[in-house]
């Protein structure tokens, strides 16, 4: 009898442990939009298409190189895959006011938010900027990358195209 109970508990547990874990989604954190409004990051969506979430700052030169380089090809990316780039600035009060003028001044067409208390950065365990996350159509984080070197945007875009075509990403 005891053995039976033990056996059934073991099956239950192993079943629980080996069942597929859900993938990570955007945490629920409030960030500020370019108009000063509050947006919860768990509500980020792109109608079932891939999303790029990129952490940057006005004082981070590789971040700006990355986002400026992507800006040159962003129209093509959107047209070909429907991807949306969400740029999260971690600038604090010293520079937060310069974010919107910089974004507009550079003509970026991204969705931009400010995470000045770094709540989202902490929740996503980001060490340094730039840091990029790629989300699939279900809003699950399927890929991430720290730092930026010239040409990294091509690797990112390969991953975006694979996602848009419904393929699984090898991490």
């Amino acid at each position: 009898m005891k053995k039976l109970i033990l056996l059934s508990i073991l099956t239950t547990l192993s079943f629980t442990i080996f069942s597929q874990q859900e993938k990570r989604a955007m945490p629920s954190v409030n960030v500020t939009d370019m108009e000063g409004g509050t947006v919860n990051t768990s509500e980020f969506n792109n109608d079932g298409k891939p999303m790029i979430v990129n952490f940057w700052a006005t004082w981070c030169s590789p971040c700006k190189r990355e986002l400026n380089n992507i800006a040159d090809v962003y129209d093509d990316w959107v047209e070909e895959t429907g991807v949306k780039l969400i740029a999260i600035s971690i600038d604090d009060a010293r520079n937060a006011g310069k974010v919107a003028p910089y974004v507009n001044g550079k003509g970026w067409e991204y969705e931009v938010y400010i995470d000045s208390n770094q709540d989202l950065k902490r929740a996503l365990n980001v060490n340094n900027v730039p840091h990029t996350f790629l989300l699939n159509g279900k809003g699950e984080i399927v890929w991430q990358h720290n730092s930026y070197q010239e040409g990294d945007e091509d690797t990112l875009y390969e991953a975006v195209k694979a996602l848009a075509a419904g393929k699984e990403l090898k991490h």
Binding site: G97, K98, A100, P101, V103, N104, G105, G107
Partner: peptide, 13 residues
């Protein structure tokens, strides 16, 4: 105190 104005291609703080 801070004032900012921006439009596509131009930003001022």
């Amino acid at each position: 105190a801070e004032t900012a104005y921006s439009t596509k291609g131009f930003g001022l703080t």
